[in-house]
Design a protein around this nucleic acid. Structure first.
Lengths: 78, 78
DNA sequence: CTGTAGACTATCGTCGACA
DNA sequence: ATGTCGACGATAGTCTACA
């Protein structure tokens, strides 16, 4: 599983937990729904700015989102 | 303190803790030293990919780096 | 409600040079 | 060892439209 795919999966999971549509999330985070869709299909790497905006709209911390991603790709600092 | 500045501060702090130069960090993380310099002067927002690469080179987790940033800007999920 | 496409603008990240 | 510049190619993110 690539980093991009892990981010996509983490975003979908967090959004569904909050029972939001891609469109609602886009609106709340200030992004185009088409872009949200691209992120969830692993077509784009979000900037850290986007991560913060999306996290806030999702009601989770960026750190928590990162942890979810780390687990999926088995990240280990050296 | 802006998000950009918080990221810059967190990166400088982590790099100095590891006693690396900007050049060494750039080399280890696979980025141009000029770019590391830009990040540390708050001139660029790193992509999430860069965050992962930099974190690995810094020997910390991306989540830990994000927590440091969150604290500095007082991030609160709604 | 989600996925896809194309064309667009803004920003990331590289590179050579110099102080 | 760091800071700065300008130019550049690559990629983030927008917008309209349709299935």
């Amino acid at each position: 599983m690539s980093l991009q795919e892990a981010i996509a999966a983490a975003l979908v999971k967090a959004r569904k937990k909050r029972k939001l549509t891609q469109e609602e999330l886009g609106y709340r985070a200030g992004y185009d729904p088409v872009y949200i869709n691209m992120l969830e299909r692993a077509r784009r790497y979000p900037s850290i700015r986007a991560i913060f905006n999306l996290s806030e709209a999702l009601g989770i911390t960026p750190a928590a989102l990162m942890e979810d991603v780390q687990k999926q790709i088995g990240f280990k600092p050296r």
